[in-house]
């Protein structure tokens, strides 16, 4: 198992190299430059040319790429043109914000989704199942950004229960009030994200439970004289959780990428918003670093999913 994980990690290296080249070229192919919008509009065009030259942006792409890679290996992702801060510092700050929101959202998603899915599946066709299905149809058919905007409007501006922007209050000091303030900022986006993002889990689990109920091994268990309660506990639940486990890995790393909608509506300074701004401002160093990071997280998610699945399903062995 460990050998396999190590080998999979080694295979990731060439994948990441290819990804980095692609990302770099595509970022450079975007029209525009990082300076036009940020210097005095009356400035001479030659000043922009000067800045481009000084920053090495007129060098051939392979030379720029090489410089970037060399610095990357020294742990230096460059400096953001927009924020004038090292990209590593930026990602560390924003990543931390996103991490807390993602963790909170994910826990809530599973806390809401697992019982709903199992309950709906085991009561197929009855009232609770119908209610759960109505819930999933509603959450699936409303665009998420509408939910966010309406949520902020009702619970933020109108009722004033939750802050409407930022990740932490500026006057929070001391451990207790820091945690409290952070929590206050993530409850609403986290709750909305979970309530509207849990549909997949509910629907998957529901249909898995229904499938498992009519499976042959459940028939065998019944012919053994096992009670319905024990059949659910020992046979149906675990088998139904397999597909959920299969995409758990992706969802963990996927959430770390941040949600652009959530972060925009809540002005939450996370990775999603950072990425969006970087694209708008042609902040090459940030774009390339983030895309590379997302790529890496995706590969890691695949590996994580495989590992989780091989733990819960003996038929799948990572070899």
């Amino acid at each position: 198992m460990w050998k396999t994980i190590l080998r999979r990690l080694l295979i990731m290296i060439p994948e990441i190299i290819i990804l980095s080249v692609l990302v770099f070229i595509l970022a450079k192919a975007m029209p525009g430059d990082p300076f036009t919008g940020s210097i005095n509009p009356k400035a001479d065009a030659s000043q922009i040319h000067h800045l481009m030259r000084v920053n090495g942006l007129y060098d051939p792409w392979y030379q720029q790429y090489w410089n970037w890679i060399v610095h990357l290996f020294h742990g230096d992702l460059g400096t953001s043109y927009e924020y004038q801060e090292p990209v590593t510092t930026l990602i560390a700050q924003r990543g931390m914000n996103t991490f807390w929101l993602a963790l909170f959202t994910m826990i809530l998603t599973y806390v809401i989704g697992l019982p709903l899915g199992i309950y709906a599946g085991s009561h197929e066709g009855k009232l609770p199942d119908t209610l759960v299905r109505v819930y999933t149809y509603i959450t699936m058919s409303i665009p998420f950004f509408v939910v966010l905007v309406v949520g902020v409007w009702i619970f933020g501006y109108t009722l004033n229960w939750f802050p409407t922007s930022g990740s932490i209050a500026s006057n929070a000091n001391g451990l207790g009030s820091t945690i409290l303030s952070r929590l206050q900022h993530i409850i609403l986006p986290g709750l909305l994200g979970a309530l509207f993002g849990t549909v997949n889990i509910v629907q998957y689990l529901r249909s898995e439970v229904i499938d498992a109920k009519s499976s042959d091994y459940v028939k065998t268990a019944r012919s053994k004289g096992v009670s319905t309660k024990n059949i659910y506990q020992h046979h149906i639940f675990r088998n139904s959780l397999l597909p959920i486990a299969a995409f758990a890995g992706y969802s963990i790393t996927g959430l770390l990428g941040g949600s652009i909608f959530t972060e925009m509506v809540f002005s939450y300074p996370g990775m999603g918003l950072l990425f969006l701004n970087a694209i708008n401002y042609r902040d090459y160093t940030v774009i390339t670093s983030l895309v590379l990071l997302y790529g890496f997280l995706n590969l890691l998610g695949t590996l994580l999913s495989d590992i989780i699945l091989s733990i819960v399903d003996p038929r799948i062995r990572v070899e």
Binding site: S215, D216, Y217, K219, T220, A221, R222, S223, K224, G225, V226, S227, H234, H235, R238, N239, V312, D313, P314, R315
Partner: peptide, 24 residues
């Protein structure tokens, strides 16, 4: 019924792969 199934009456199924729980 559960006290009779498995104890007094045993059943053998047609497809032995699907009749066994794959995770146990």
């Amino acid at each position: 019924y559960n006290q009779i199934r498995g104890a007094k009456i045993g059943m053998i199924f047609q497809d032995p792969l699907s009749a066994l729980n794959p995770l146990q």
